[in-house]
């Protein structure tokens, strides 16, 4: 993370309005290669809005958006994917009536054949899907079964496996472990580390400070649509981070009332 590097993705003073709602009111952040940036903040702080903008889902109302140091404006999520930015959305972006395989390769279908006989390579797609899901710790019984029939956690794993498989430069994860079991959660944290070690930049959103502290290199805290600050791991302790995440609300007294369990 030497400052001489250019960030993979950078936003400065990003503003996003939805009609009269001000979702982001001047957010700045960046992510470098080979680092995990944790994006933290209360419910409604604007984390998902920020990463949706990075992923090309929303167009920013104003502010600078740079990819590899160059100003970019994505016309849609396809542009972002083409630029190597893969995202696990909070709502997962899965199509329930379609098979696991078709969802996994949605928009990135493997093809065989030439000219008019070009077709989707279903066998290869099935195999890749099964293998990638197996790596994350889920045995897909039948890759042709509809995603709607999977459990919530299984569905989340499909979304994560897909993003990891296609993420070439930046991997964005919006609360990827919210529905996961213990084994799958630790698997995802391990994944984040592996992906970072390969030289990608990872943006990781979570409400669990221990998960954040376990894999994060830097922490950007949002509060009510603004950046509260960015801290490197050695500059902030886990307790201080937790207090920032709560947007300054008093957590201490609450945790005493509840017998210190949070």
């Amino acid at each position: 993370m030497s400052t001489s590097q250019t960030p993979l993705v950078e936003v400065r003073n990003l503003v996003k309005h939805f009609g009269s709602v001000i979702a982001l009111n001047g957010v700045s952040m960046n992510v470098y290669p080979n680092e995990v940036l944790c994006l933290l903040g209360d419910n409604g702080a604007g984390k998902s809005t920020l990463i949706n903008t990075l992923a090309g889902v929303h167009k920013p109302t104003s502010g600078d958006f740079l990819v590899d140091g160059q100003p970019r404006l994505f016309s849609g999520p396809r542009d972002a994917l083409d630029a190597g930015i893969a995202t696990v959305y909070q709502d997962l972006a899965m199509i329930p009536l379609m098979s696991v395989t078709r969802n996994f390769f949605m928009g990135r279908e493997p093809m065989v054949g030439f000219g008019p006989f070009k077709r989707m390579n279903m066998d290869e797609a099935d195999n890749v899907t099964r293998d990638e899901m197996h790596k994350i710790g889920i045995d897909v019984r039948d890759p042709q079964q509809a995603v709607g029939t999977l459990s919530g956690g299984e569905r989340q794993c499909v979304a994560i496996a897909r993003a990891v498989y296609f993420g070439a430069k930046v991997l964005i994860l919006d609360e990827p472990t919210s529905a996961l079991g213990v084994a799958q959660t630790s698997m995802v944290l391990k994944y984040i580390n592996q992906v970072r070690a390969k030289g990608l930049g990872v943006i990781f959103i979570t409400h669990n400070v221990r998960h954040a502290y376990a894999v994060g290199n830097r922490f950007t805290v949002l509060n009510r649509g603004k950046t509260l600050g960015t801290y490197t791991k050695d500059a902030i302790g886990i307790e201080a981070l937790q207090n920032l995440m709560a947007g300054g609300k008093e957590l201490q007294s609450l945790s005493e009332e509840l017998g210190g369990t949070i």
Binding site: P77, L81, M94, I95, L97, R102, M106, G107, R108, E109
Partner: peptide, 21 residues
């Protein structure tokens, strides 16, 4: 074909389809 896959996706959940590229 790829276009066929996109037809199912666009009808199944257009927002999710767009987010998936």
């Amino acid at each position: 074909t790829r276009f066929g896959n996109w037809i199912f996706a666009s009808g199944g959940d257009p927002r999710a389809a767009r987010k998936s590229g």
